[in-house]
Write a protein that binds this DNA or RNA. Sequence first.
DNA 1: CTGAAAGCGCTAACAC
DNA 2: GTGTTAGCGCTTTCAG
Lengths: 351, 351
Amino acid sequence: MRQKVSRPTIKEVAAASGVSTQTISRVINERPDVSPETRKRVQEVINKLGYRPSALARSLIRRRSHTLGVVTAGLNYTGPSRTLNGITAAVEQAGYALLLKELPRFDANSNEPIFQALVSRHVDGIIWAVQEVGENRNWINKLALDFDIPIIYLTMEPRENISVVSINNYVGERLAMSHLLEQGYKHIGHISGPLEWWEARQRMKAWKDALQEGGVEFREDFWVEGNWSSASGTRAAEKLFEQYTDMDAILVANDQMALGAMQIAHQKGLRIPQDIGITGFDNLPESAFFGPPLTTVNHDQYNLGKLAVEEIIKIIESGWDEEVPTQPKSIILEPALIVRASSLRMGYENK
Amino acid sequence: MRQKVSRPTIKEVAAASGVSTQTISRVINERPDVSPETRKRVQEVINKLGYRPSALARSLIRRRSHTLGVVTAGLNYTGPSRTLNGITAAVEQAGYALLLKELPRFDANSNEPIFQALVSRHVDGIIWAVQEVGENRNWINKLALDFDIPIIYLTMEPRENISVVSINNYVGERLAMSHLLEQGYKHIGHISGPLEWWEARQRMKAWKDALQEGGVEFREDFWVEGNWSSASGTRAAEKLFEQYTDMDAILVANDQMALGAMQIAHQKGLRIPQDIGITGFDNLPESAFFGPPLTTVNHDQYNLGKLAVEEIIKIIESGWDEEVPTQPKSIILEPALIVRASSLRMGYENK
DNA sequence: CTGAAAGCGCTAACAC
DNA sequence: GTGTTAGCGCTTTCAG
């Protein structure tokens, strides 16, 4: 059994092997210029002592920490946590470590301390995995440029000169709208997310545009704003049924609110999808088991995180400091529609 | 506008201020022994240059990194991500940083590299936030003791001489069982989680014990094993209805599987709760909006993470190296039953 | 092939 | 009050 002592340093290994620390360094870094015998002897001492090089000391001298800073928010929601899931997998894969910060609120705006904490720990790059909400992007030009470190942003409106990875929310809801129209729904209402959120605005815009292209004039009472929660979905649906009496379908901006809306429809004795069609967004694993199963938009949040990591590592390793740094680019992931019973009324007689 | 240059070091600040690096050190550490004028002058240079001390260099010399290692698994599930949510909040609160590792599988057993990565980055303590599954705890005595570093474990069977923070799964399901029995259900089946999981075994044991105490003999066909997913819930429920024809209630080990079971009940034309009572576990936010709303067991996973952080920081700061280290202790959180329509048949006529 | 010297950015211990 | 020296654990020169 190895003994429980404070870990040995390179010096102690050197002493125990009868060589200089330099030679130990060469062995642990797998440099070629060590004689086989020396290498073997040193290796044995390393194993015996359980020596592991200090990543800290290395980071200091090499000016590369092989550590990524990740800033997230709302880990209690499935979206951010699935994305983080993809980030951790890719970070691990690349042999990096991950320093995590979670903002207390989505619209937190005092980001200086966050950056300080990350930069003072010498992260090689930062993934800003916080949705664009309200004014929480105003600092980009002010602050981010001060820090000479690559940053990649998730889930936000693409901007000039920065790297962004996002999901195409607009196309997602357009797909859902096309499907509802094909199914013969004519009076499609919308429950949006909070319009403070860029994603909510994108999804709503898709609804509006599709209506317009179908020759329906937009009216304020065709639409109610929710806050992503199921409870807000029930409130929004109640209001919507009241103010939009012709309504025969609801495009809901996420699955949770759609679940709330379904509950209200049931309470009113409306049959889904015959009397009212409903679609969601996110494709929660549970949505396939709602009553009835929910038509929704699937987007790959895991992959979102994975791609962000791969991109930033590419930027880091291609030499951020070089004369010609890697050009910032935006990556947009395309979602897909998952058709389920909640919107499929073609099989039924029209009422 | 501050200029975008590589961050200044303490040396440059010293040169610019015309004092020694030592004095700079005293100022940034708020030591008393600096004259007001010097302090002021240095402070100004610091602000002007945008100097921030390197946490890395400090960690190296102080032998304290103010960084916690957190190991998790299954961030795509709500449980682990809510717990991480609590961890990040508490870590931030305490002024620590957080190094995150996610295991690719719950039952991963090659933990040596994980520890190496964390220890080589000089974390002050480790939170092992991975559920106890299969053999994934065998290494505790072998490996963990090799590392002279405090570790706290979440969600596992309490053991001698280690610090554990868990939720009382057993009591949770006992509460649910008492409630079902009070409601007059007599033939209560069970859909368990995978019995590889300690939590699944605890929940099942509560069901068994409650049956026995109620004078019902346990039979193999009163029970089916699921894998936590809604899909497995449907399969398990189908099988259970087949093999346990008298069944009038199902104690389901989590909300997702309960949702699947509800779907099957509906398909069979059974009314919930009149013909079949159903309870879940976890209190997913959505469970209040299932059709009907689901009776479930609430447990505070956020707080679980928060407490773990507070506990390990207490251990670290009370002097892990001292002669008499802090005694390991277990913290067990008590869950609460949330009664909703899916199990409330007292209001209805018995059929 | 191997070692000695210097130093990454900072602080502890001691002078003065 | 302030500066000097040494060194955290490692790697990068540069000799030999």
